[in-house]
């Protein structure tokens, strides 16, 4: 079903770090849920179109008129760190992840 190695791979994709204990539990719990989900593999779905959205609206755009939006100071007010009118983040190079 989903083993420890797959759990670690998916966790890396999702930017989550799991403890050893969490990896084991996640493997068991996800396997049980996926076991239930896999029943949809038994259905004959040939020729059935996928539904991504139940609403038939496409390219819903408002009129192209300039409107006020959040002031920079307001948009930045919740950030953990800011500098020079922008969001401050650690260097992507520091402690770089090989991925």
């Amino acid at each position: 079903m989903i083993d420890r190695e797959q759990v670690l791979h998916v966790a890396r994709l999702a930017r989550l770090e799991l403890t050893d204990d969490e990896v084991g539990r996640m493997s068991e719990e996800l396997s049980a849920v996926l076991g239930h989900i896999e029943k949809i593999g038994e259905l004959d779905l040939d020729g059935v179109l996928p539904t991504t959205h139940v609403v038939e609206v496409s390219n819903a755009l408002r009129s192209d008129v300039v409107e006020p939006s959040l002031a920079p100071a307001v948009a930045l007010a919740n950030a953990p760190a800011v500098a020079d009118g922008g969001f401050l983040v650690p260097s992507p190079q520091a402690g770089a992840d090989p991925s």
Partner: peptide, 12 residues
């Protein structure tokens, strides 16, 4: 330390 580590630790 780095950016990806910050993402990962914050989310975890």
């Amino acid at each position: 330390g780095g950016l990806v580590g910050m993402y990962t630790q914050t989310r975890s």
